[in-house]
Amino acid sequence: MKTILTLAAVRIRITLRNKTFLFFSLIMPLAIFFLYGSVFAKGKPEAVAYLMGPILSFTVMGTFWGLSMQLVTWREQGILRRFRLAPIAASSMIVSSILANYLLILPTVIFELLLARFIYHVTTFGNLISVFVLVILGITAFGAMGLVVASVTNTMQETQIINQLLWFALIFLSGATVPLAVLPHMVQRIGLFLPATYFVYGLQRAMLADAHLYTLGTVVFSLIAWAALASFISSQLFRWEPEAKLPRNAKLWAVATILPFVLLGIWENHNGKLLATAAYMMEGRPTENTPPADKR
């Protein structure tokens, strides 16, 4: 435990000294915050409140970039080998990186909530307990996904390509950029297979409809299942050495992480009410503004 805490503390220090990280985890989320708040929501408190779900999702989902890039860089540069000489378990490396990310991302989330309150005068944030539980689950799940990506790719370039693909799917098909309700019907149905969709949806329900954790059972349960599965698989696939061979079935393992959402996607596509609720939430948004997508 002491090892994990010491490692997490050092990781935080290193990360805060890294300009790229500061850009992606602070400047970019804040840029998105002000873009959404001032341009899309035109500063109207109700519209900003509606967009807080997507804004926080951006902030949280960004974790997978940082974690996967750090892991692959440390492996490529032989930094992990040096750690491996010491009596440290792979699990300590993994847990410390996710722990560090809580402490790096939660302040940004709180800062965004405060900005919404004091700059855009948003008065109600719904059920903040639900919001924070979802944020913490999200950091764990998306972070662990980043570690899985770093473990099944061999070079920085490969990691970046996979990250780009995942990132675009996550932000464009989930309702994080364009509200789910205005996406083409086919895309909405694909979106139901993405964890990000549930994450954005869960945050919006918690903030707009005051949803308790138990009413968000499906979302919470699927995020927990995903976080657990992705963490487990990332510990199984963890490689200390750049030249360490990837087990032949590693990519299958990586694909297995999406299992909870494949099942959930199938179920939601048949029986779910998520799309209807998402549409309702958007219509219920008490503003005459069109959502960002409609402006195009």
Partner: peptide, 28 residues
Amino acid sequence: EIGATLQATSLPDKLRVSEAIRLFASFY
């Protein structure tokens, strides 16, 4: 029981010298 220097190895760029040695000391 052992200590070692490796041929192909490195430390994070933005880790300070004193932090590096303290960090590794904490593992033993």
